[in-house]
Amino acid sequence: MSSFDIDNPAPPRRRPWTGIERAFAAVGLSGRALVIAAPAIWLTVFFLVPLAVVFGISLATKQFGKPPYSDLLTTEDGTVQLTLHLSNYVRLFTDSLYVAAYLNSIKIAFISTIFALLIGFPMAYFIARSSDRWRNILLMLVILPFWTSFLLRVYALTGFMRGNGVINQILGVFHIPPLVMMQTDFAVYVGIVYTYLPFMILPLFTNLVKLDGALLEASADLGGRPMRTFFSITLPLSMPGVIAGSMLVFIPAIGEFVIPSLLGGPETLMIGRVLWDEFFTNTNWPRAAAVAIAMLVVVVVPIMLLQKAQDAVQDTARAK
């Protein structure tokens, strides 16, 4: 970068921000520091500290009063005492309800992710390989549901799957007896796949659209059958998209509350629901906090996988 010395520079137009900038400079704040500090402070207060508070309260016990948990720090005869209870965590491992809920959440999230991948991959591939004009329209059709309310889409599914719902009425036309879909695990799978499908398709599309067509042609020229080409070229090259999309479905599905409570039955145990009930029904805040910390432990590895995969998707997008 170079700067020019012009003998008669045009007088700079005065704008309000020139004044603001001088004011900040006068108290020794550079613009750069402010740009970093504002979001950093906000996120520390409203993201990092709350997680620490959850951890702290998970070590307390329930008590009646306001707030409904015991103090960690107490002063007795002038000395500060720190009381930590591990009972909440012990309960998580010994009470079969919690263990079952965790295992069931992982199972439901995993199976839903597989189905979302099986449905989303062909869709993303089809969109990536269609002509420019169609590609934009199809992408819009994928993004559109993402902008409409999540809650209302889950509600739309209840109208579709209930006893006298659309599916059973169509089956009735063919004299097929109605299926029981609502309040089953099946409905929860459908709900998760339905609502999170755009999250699967978009990273896959970003990845697949950059796929080098010459590689596929080369494989076909060398006699590779379509299946072989797919499994030895397309799939390996789209791995970052597969992982990013899968994690974007799996991670939120683990903690899902709305879908199991609207579509699932009373026996559909999921950890998000357990946390909700601990908090709202039992008002056991420390127990709910322990459930949250344990849930965080479950999603930490998927989050790290996601971060890596997203960087890889970005890199391939930039390389082109």
Binding site: T44, L51, M247, I251, E256
Partner: peptide, 24 residues
């Protein structure tokens, strides 16, 4: 740290975000 803090809420399960902010 900043990049992690800003992208974590994207995937953080809602129940955890809600509970942690309430306790805060």
């Amino acid at each position: 740290v900043l990049s992690g803090m800003v992208s974590a809420p994207l995937v953080m399960p809602d129940v955890i975000t809600g509970l942690s902010l309430l306790l805060l």
